[in-house]
Simulated assay, not measured.
Amino acid sequence: MKRSVWMLALALSGCASVSDINQTPPTMSFISGKKPHEYAKCVADRLADSRGSLQMEPHKNGVRVIVPGKLSSMPAAVFDIEERSSGSGVKLHESLSNVPVRPGDVQEAANACISG
């Protein structure tokens, strides 16, 4: 049963774009002691084995990190990282945010990279 729910979720999320993902409520929102580029590099390093190459682009006062899906190159998650006086404000949006059996590697990387 879990496998079929997972496959259905992957099939439905295959067409998500960055703007679609950003319209969902953030699954995580927090402040990090790291500057935006430091935090983005940490996330990219942590997800390199499970997600491959992440896309980074300038966004507002920081950087946006676009995480590809495990089975496709379509976006699965978006980190919006904005500079603050004492580090970064981070919002994580995930395409499968309402599916309880989604991969946990993105949130694990987000948590692991919070502290300086």
Rank of each mutant, 00 (worst) to 15 (best):
I31E: 14
P58F: 04
A16C: 14
Q55G: 07
R64M: 14
A44H: 06
P68W: 00
D49S: 11
S32T: 07
P25I: 09
E57S: 09
S29N: 11
D49I: 08
C15W: 15
H37W: 11
I31H: 13
V43S: 03
H59V: 07
G69K: 06
C15P: 00
P58I: 06
S17A: 15
A48K: 11
V65A: 12
I66S: 05
P68K: 05
S17P: 10
T27N: 00
K60A: 14
S17M: 00
D45S: 09
A44I: 02
R64E: 12
D49L: 08
G52S: 06
L54G: 04
K34Q: 05
A44D: 08
P26W: 00
K41V: 03
R51K: 15
A11N: 14
I66T: 15
L54P: 04
S13Y: 01
D20V: 02
Y39C: 02
Y39G: 02
S50Q: 10
H37S: 14
S17H: 12
P58A: 10
G52A: 10
A44V: 07
D20C: 07
I66Y: 09
A11L: 15
P68R: 02
A48C: 06
G33E: 15
G14R: 13
C15I: 12
Q55R: 09
S17F: 04
G62Y: 05
S53P: 05
N22Q: 15
K60Q: 14
S50R: 08
V43Y: 08
I66N: 05
Y39A: 00
C15E: 13
V43W: 13
I21N: 15
C42D: 15
I66Q: 04
N61R: 13
F30G: 03
T27M: 02
L12K: 05
G14S: 14
D49K: 01
P58E: 10
F30S: 05
Y39I: 10
V65F: 09
P68Q: 10
S53C: 07
G52T: 07
V43G: 03
D45A: 11
